[in-house]
Design a protein around this nucleic acid. Structure first.
Lengths: 344, 344
DNA sequence: CTGAAAGCGCTAACAG
DNA sequence: CTGTTAGCGCTTTCAG
């Protein structure tokens, strides 16, 4: 348990004042007309003994932590995992740490997390909000902490948002099937009413409507928290497919659903795409390697991460607190056509 | 920017002393013989206004942050992602937050992370160390912060470790193939010299040796950071398979390698398992859903996460600092036999 | 039960 | 350039 060196120790050793050391360390040497020689001497000794200021004390004093909180749905979902690490990479390149955690899309967990993060006095937030946390978020926004929503937003709350054009993606995917003469297309989605899910569904409904085909939307229970629900979800999809033998194609509203769906399809022994065409929202390794490969609506993860960081850091450095109009970034998705959507 | 309520505000409102509020808040009401009535009154008001003590100040004062750092290789790897979220879940059930970050197996990143975490004064660490950070880690251990290694350890450093019996797992997998008369088995591994990789290789070599078969170990470049290396890795595996047409089976030393390998195999159009049997260390969704399903050596993620938290929290609460003998937990793995290893 | 007071380690205004 | 000083918000000892 050797004790850490303190700013005081280094000042004493160098026989200069604590102020000088602090000023040099914070890049204010010039401003306070400290000689380059002295500044250099300080920096050198600091490096030599490996002195690291205590961030707790620093933050307590300055009110800044240089940490941003990333609250996502589920870190074990490839989409969120990828965005998380990209955000982290960009943030750290710009001097920020990111602290991330999953809500499992539960309002209770999200509330805990927000409270926890607030106690830690993070500088800003990126949040994929579950339903039911409007009040907490509103309070968070009112407190003036820079916050940007991601993946979905909460209609009542005016803040920055970064996401994709969900409706267009699904519309396009539905078209792809319709153009091949596949008309009995079902849309499998979760029970959630989140904006991104609603938009995806709406893209599907519109395409079907325009084609004069009846839409068939099926809601499947989905829960990341409890592994037993996993089986239930598979069973539900299984059931649906069995009850709808005429269904020629299914579009899954996200990649968790699709993964579960592939399992259900395998159980039933339905051949893809001959007996059932499949398209998933969100791309991932599994889809590239599956036999057949799975057509997916891919979100531009790299661009999303960059946009998130840019929007947030802009707010962070900006002086005008909640002045400007909230910024909204909506990126296009791309349809990655693979084997599972091909007409046999 | 409304200001947060402080302990001072609540004391004043209740017309009691700050000391009293603090004592009640920290569960020391009894100890200081504060009446239940008063304690109740305090708690109630605190709840009412939603007062949250400033953790920065608290930590600065107490020296405890109640945050543990989880330093893993790659959060987008399903194995690490799963362990991370399980650790997080257990930790939070026991009053700890976890802060996790990936090293991409780079010593430089790991050093940065350790330094960063140290500045934040975390209470303890769980680390999957890359090679080349021995010095930093030794210093960390000497500073007395509870630390447990995970997945692999660094031979020179005596600290607690939680991992699996890697050698036995691969030995068993190799046996499975040998028992079916498949003898030309290659072992594809990374270039790393980490303990877990060495042990896996050793399990393979021993099995081959005992069977009187020549071992064939191939090292493949692998890098999580740089996506261009991804293609290189695939190309390397591709090349290897092409150069060794007689090879009947391949065991991948981890799941990233296996994922890449499946891609290479698909490119070559080799049929699994008829032309090439495949087994991977680490299990994941992809392997369950692939056609054919992929046999895998599965690590007990749930048990690992629990062991990690138990070992760490034991050290955290223990008074004897580096007193006791370092604890080592080595869990068994299980062979999940699926389609890819079946003799046709 | 309580009030005062010290202090965790650092920043930054202020007056030299 | 520097020394002093006043905190940031909280815990905890000590003397009532």
């Amino acid at each position: 348990m050797k004790k850490r060196t303190l700013i005081h120790d280094i000042a004493r050793h160098l026989e200069v004042s604590i102020t000088t050391v602090s000023l040099v360390l914070n890049g204010k040497a010039k401003e306070y007309r400290i000689s380059d020689a002295l500044a250099e001497r300080v920096m050198q000794y600091v490096a030599q003994v490996g002195y690291r200021p205590n961030q707790l004390a620093k933050s307590l004093r300055t009110g800044k932590t240089h940490v941003i909180g990333l609250i996502i749905e589920d870190i074990s979902n490839p989409f969120f995992a990828t965005v998380a690490r990209l955000v982290e990479r960009h943030a750290s390149a710009r001097g920020y740490r990111v602290l991330y955690s999953s809500t499992d899309d539960s309002a209770a967990k999200a509330k805990d997390l927000i409270a926890l993060f607030q106690e830690q006095h993070l500088d800003g937030y990126i949040i994929a909000p579950p339903a039911g946390v409007e009040a907490e978020l509103e309070q968070l926004l009112k407190s003036g902490v820079p916050t940007v929503f991601f993946d979905r937003y909460l209609p009542g709350l005016a803040t920055d948002y970064v996401g994709v054009d969900n409706a267009a993606g699904v519309y396009q995917a539905t078209q792809l099937l319709l153009d091949q003469g596949v008309a009995r297309i079902a849309f499998l989605t979760t029970e959630s009413t989140q904006t991104q899910m609603a938009a995806r569904q709406q893209g599907y409904t519109r395409a079907m409507q325009e084609a004069g085909q009846p839409a068939q939307v099926q809601h499947v229970p989905l829960n990341f928290d409890d592994d037993s629900v996993r089986e239930q979800s598979i069973a539900a999809i299984h059931q649906f497919l069995q009850d709808n033998p005429a269904c020629e194609a299914v579009i899954f509203a996200n990649n968790s659903l699709a993964t579960l769906g592939l399992e259900a399809i395998a159980q039933l022994g339905r051949r893809i795409p001959q007996e059932l065409a499949v398209i998933s929202f969100d791309d991932n390794d599994l889809f590239r390697l599956h036999s057949p490969t799975i057509t997916a609506i891919a979100q531009p993860v790299e661009a999303l991460a960059e946009a998130l960081i840019n929007v947030l850091l802009a707010k962070l450095s900006d002086e005008r607190p909640a002045a400007a109009q909230p910024q909204t970034v909506e990126l296009p998705v791309s349809l990655v056509v693979r084997g599972s959507s091909a007409r046999q």
